[in-house]
């Protein structure tokens, strides 16, 4: 039994349909638990106060914004190499989810920035990169919409996705270079904080397994970070991933049905 069996549209729908309610259920459970835990049962950060709690939305959304593009890149390559229609349709189905994730990351970033930087928008390299990613998603979706023939559209959007990935990567470095001077004094960074949380957690796990003599060095920049933040964040991340999987299955199924209607119509016309 091969993995590629699931590239058959019927098999794909038959396999994913029973999974869907479970996926949506798990996603809802994770998000409710993670967000309530994160918002109400974790302490405030000493320097950032309660504003830091936006990480429970911001970080998973930002993570998904990038990963969805990565998934589209993989499915585009699969389409170009193996010509599985489901793969191309999955890329098409994922793009609107990706753009919403990017939008959530941008908006939550702005909301966090208002009290911290005193402005809704700063041309911070990270925020700027997400803005550029947003534009890439926009162009990709517009190209899908503009072409009538589904196979031509799939081919061209796949090529755009591959070339776009390279240039998105380049833009990331360009933006970092461009704004290196501006925020040198920027001491409070949401992402540094998050990385600290994650690093602290793994250090904690490592130390409790291997004992104190195996202590690993973690570059901890802020003393007040503790692993109580990590577990709810992890639950939220899992929630976002499962939610994405559920949504992408649902939307791919819809796209497959649209194609099927189109195929049946053209067969009927042909007689």
């Amino acid at each position: 039994m091969s993995f590629w069996e699931y590239a058959n549209p019927k098999k794909f729908i038959a396999t994913t349909t029973p999974i869907l309610p479970w996926a949506f259920g798990i996603a809802a459970a994770c998000l409710i638990v993670g967000l309530v835990w994160g918002f109400f049962f974790t302490p405030d950060d000493i320097r950032q106060g309660s504003t830091v709690k936006i990480i429970y939305l911001h970080v998973p959304a930002a993570m998904m914004a990038i990963n969805v593009w990565g998934m589209m890149l993989v499915t585009s390559l699969i389409w170009l190499i193996r010509r599985h229609h489901v793969s191309a349709l999955a890329a098409r189905a994922a793009a609107p989810i990706g753009i919403v994730m990017t939008l959530i990351a941008l908006v939550t970033g702005a909301i966090w920035g208002q009290p911290m930087w005193g402005t809704w928008w700063a041309w911070d390299p990270r925020l700027t990169s997400f803005l550029i990613l947003f534009l890439f998603y926009l162009g990709y979706m517009a190209l899908w919409e503009a072409i009538d023939d589904p196979d031509t559209a799939a081919d061209l959007t796949s090529i755009l996705c591959i070339v776009g990935s390279v240039f998105a990567f380049l833009s990331r470095f360009a933006v970092q270079f461009w704004n290196q001077g501006l925020h040198q004094a920027e001491s409070v960074s949401l992402w540094e904080w998050t990385f600290n949380v994650i690093a602290r957690f793994f250090a904690f796990v490592w130390n409790s397994i291997f004992g104190a003599e195996q202590v690993i060095e973690v570059a901890v920049r802020e003393e007040n970070v503790s692993n109580v933040f990590f577990v709810p964040l992890l639950i939220c991340m899992i929630g976002f991933v499962v939610l994405f999987v559920a949504l992408v299955f649902q939307r791919t199924t819809t796209e497959i049905r649209v194609r099927r209607i189109r195929a049946l119509e053209s067969r009927a016309r042909r007689g």
């Binding site: 058959n8 549209p9 229609h85 194609r259 099927r260 189109r262 195929a263 049946l264 067969r267």
Partner: peptide
């Protein structure tokens, strides 16, 4: 005719 194979819609019929 309908027996001709290889069309791009085939996987969806």
């Amino acid at each position: 005719d309908h027996t001709a194979t290889g069309g791009s819609d085939e996987a969806f019929l």
